[in-house]
Amino acid sequence: MAEVSVAADDEAALPPGVPGTDLLSLHESIAGVLATQGDWRRAYHHLKSAFDLARAGSLRDTLTSSYNRRYLDQWLHGPAVEHRGPPGIAIALVDLDLFKKVNDTFGHLVGDRVLREVADLLQQGLPPEAFCARYGGEEFALVIPDVDAARAVRIADTARIRVARHPWRRIRQGLSVTISVGLAHESRAEPDHAAEPERQLRRADALLYMAKRAGRNKVAYRDKESSRTIPRSMNSADATDA
């Protein structure tokens, strides 16, 4: 069998920009050739690289390339939550408004494109330590650590506005997309305040339904006095109280 040329420092001379799945296969192929040549050290290196790529791929949503529910669950129950900074952590559940109507009117291929673009729009403007994950179906989660409540609300509402103002008509005439957001923030100001990610997710989910009931295309959150939505409800001079 012909020998393959591999860099002496254990890094294969791989072409730039190779998609992850192709890169995975390439590492596996090179590992197989090196193993037949008895070069077990470099074969192991490429097998490990293939494993790392496969693991990274298992934490990504195949449609939107955002993180998936598995990654979200691992992060929320991992050490990062226990050691988050004093300002606290915000979790926002985001749902595309009337998404079934998008699929029924324009077809599932357009619906898939909408999901991909919404995921990209949600990721824009997030702090470096924050991330977007597809929670399921047309629902996403934004996790924003080390942030106070006021900034978390601004980030969530900026995302809502970004989606509403996106030029959706360039995809299909008549297409418009908005999102509703339920934002739950937990502070670490009290030293004995334990992280309870499941409880925080349930709060975000309840607030998401509040945003839906208030007319959609809104962010619902809870301040010190009550639950509120932004922008203002049509039947309220200030905010919608739960």
Rank of each mutant, 00 (worst) to 15 (best):
L53G: 07
H77P: 01
D52H: 13
F99N: 00
F106W: 05
G107H: 08
I30T: 10
E138C: 02
A130K: 03
L109C: 06
Q123S: 15
L47W: 11
E82P: 02
G125R: 07
C132S: 10
L76T: 03
H45S: 11
I89D: 01
E28Y: 03
L26D: 04
R116Q: 13
K48R: 14
P128D: 09
D61M: 08
D39S: 15
D95F: 01
C132G: 07
A92D: 04
A80W: 14
L96Y: 00
L142I: 06
I144D: 02
R70E: 04
H27A: 00
L98G: 06
V143D: 00
G32N: 13
G78I: 04
G107S: 05
L47I: 09
G88A: 01
K100P: 03
A119C: 07
L93R: 06
A31M: 08
C132F: 06
A43I: 10
W75M: 14
R41V: 14
A90E: 00
W75E: 13
E117D: 11
S25N: 10
A90K: 00
G88K: 00
F140A: 07
L34K: 12
P79A: 14
G85P: 03
Q74E: 14
G57M: 14
G88D: 00
V110E: 08
L26P: 07
L63I: 07
A56G: 11
R116I: 12
F140V: 04
L24D: 04
D39Q: 15
H77V: 08
G57Y: 12
L72Y: 05
C132M: 06
G38W: 10
G111H: 00
G57R: 13
A50T: 00
F140L: 06
D97Q: 03
Y67C: 10
F140T: 03
S29T: 11
L98F: 11
G85L: 02
F99C: 03
L53F: 09
